[in-house]
Amino acid sequence: MTADQRLLLIHAHPDDESIGQGATMAKYVKEGRGVTLVTCTAGEMGEILVPELEHLAADRDDELGTHRRGELADAMAALGVIDHRFLGGFGTYRDSGMQWHPDGHAIAADDIHDNAFWRADLTEAANHLVAVIREVRPQVMVTYDEFGGYGHPDHIQAHRVATYAAALAAVPSYRTDLGEAWDIAKIYWGAMSESRMREGLRLLRDSGDSATFEGLDPDGPLPHFVSSDEALAAAVDGTDFIDAKMAALAAHKTQITTDGPFFALSNNVGAEAMGVEFYRLAKGVQGPVGPDGFETDLFAGL
C-alpha cells in the first residue's frame, strides 16, 4: 500500500461494505487513496433472493459462502478496490446467522456453528486484524457502532474486534511478530442521518410507495441504525460515484434485488440519498467542517 492516505474498513459480511460505504470507497480509490476492506465472514447464513440459487443455502448444499466470495469480488471490481481480505483468511470465521427480537432488532440465533464469528475468541480474532493494521498502516478506520447498526451478532463482533485490534496495534511491545506498532488516528462508525432518513421516507410516502422501508413513519420512531444529526461528524459526498455503488450492490445478487429498498430509494428520491454517506467519530479530533457542520472528508485535519 503506497498511497499517502489509507482507509481500512471492517465489515461482517459481503454486501455490508457496498451498502454502507460503497460511494466513499469508490471516491477514495478514484482520488488515489488506499482502500483496504476486511470482511469477517463469507455470509454463509444469508437469505437467498435468487430462486435458482436456493440450493446454496446452509441447510442444503451449504455453498453460499463460496458464491458470495465471488459476488464480493465483483462488487470490489465495480468500486475499484483491489485490496480485500477475509479476517484470518477465507473460511476462518463463519456467518453466525441471526433471528429477530420482538422489539424489531436482530439477536443471535438459537443454534450457531462451532466456528461462528459470534463465538470467536476476541484476542485471536483481533490479532488477525492487528497484523493487517500494522501492514496497511491506515490513518482512518471505519466499522460499526457497539450495537452493530441493528443488532446482528456478527456486526457487534466486528465492532468489538476492530476496536480491540486498533488498541492492541498501537502498543509498541505487543506481539512484535505481527509488525511495527501503528496508531490509527481516526476511527469512524458508519451511520444514517435522521434528517435524511425522514426526508427520504416522506418523499417515498408522498409518491405512493408504502412498501419501501415498510412500517416506518417519516414522523415516527426510527431504527437504531439511524443517528441524530447531532451525533454525526462527517458526510462524504460520493454522488458522482453513485453508479459504481449501485453496480456494487447489484453484484450481490443473492442478497439485494434490483427492485428492493436500496434501489427503490435511489430511483424515487435521487442519487443524493444513496451517494452521501454519514459517519460518527469514535476516535480522533474532528477536522475542518463544511457549512452543515460535518467533515466532508474522513481524512480532514490529518
Rank of each mutant, 00 (worst) to 15 (best):
46 G>W: 03
46 G>M: 02
46 G>P: 01
47 E>L: 04
47 E>A: 10
47 E>N: 09
47 E>Y: 00
49 L>S: 15
50 V>N: 02
50 V>P: 05
51 P>K: 05
53 L>K: 14
53 L>T: 08
53 L>D: 11
55 H>G: 12
57 A>S: 15
57 A>M: 10
57 A>F: 13
57 A>L: 10
58 A>E: 13
58 A>V: 11
59 D>L: 06
60 R>A: 15
60 R>W: 12
61 D>A: 11
61 D>K: 03
61 D>R: 00
61 D>N: 08
63 E>Y: 03
64 L>C: 04
64 L>I: 07
65 G>W: 13
65 G>R: 05
65 G>D: 01
66 T>V: 15
66 T>F: 08
68 R>Q: 02
68 R>L: 05
70 G>Q: 08
71 E>A: 05
72 L>F: 15
74 D>G: 11
74 D>W: 11
74 D>H: 13
76 M>A: 06
77 A>V: 07
77 A>T: 14
79 L>P: 10
80 G>A: 10
80 G>K: 11
81 V>D: 02
81 V>F: 00
82 I>W: 02
83 D>G: 09
83 D>M: 08
84 H>I: 04
87 L>G: 08
88 G>F: 13
89 G>R: 07
89 G>N: 05
90 F>A: 04
90 F>H: 06
90 F>D: 12
91 G>D: 05
93 Y>P: 04
93 Y>G: 06
95 D>E: 03
95 D>S: 01
96 S>W: 02
97 G>K: 07
97 G>L: 07
97 G>M: 11
98 M>D: 05
99 Q>H: 06
99 Q>R: 15
99 Q>Y: 00
100 W>K: 05
101 H>P: 10
103 D>L: 14
105 H>R: 07
105 H>W: 09
107 I>D: 04
108 A>G: 12
108 A>K: 10
109 A>T: 02
110 D>G: 14
110 D>L: 08
111 D>S: 13
111 D>E: 11
112 I>M: 07
113 H>Y: 04
113 H>Q: 06
114 D>Y: 05
116 A>P: 00
116 A>H: 00
117 F>W: 01
117 F>G: 00
117 F>K: 01
117 F>I: 07
119 R>N: 14
119 R>M: 02
119 R>Y: 03
119 R>L: 14
120 A>Y: 01
120 A>T: 07
120 A>S: 11
121 D>R: 09
121 D>S: 12
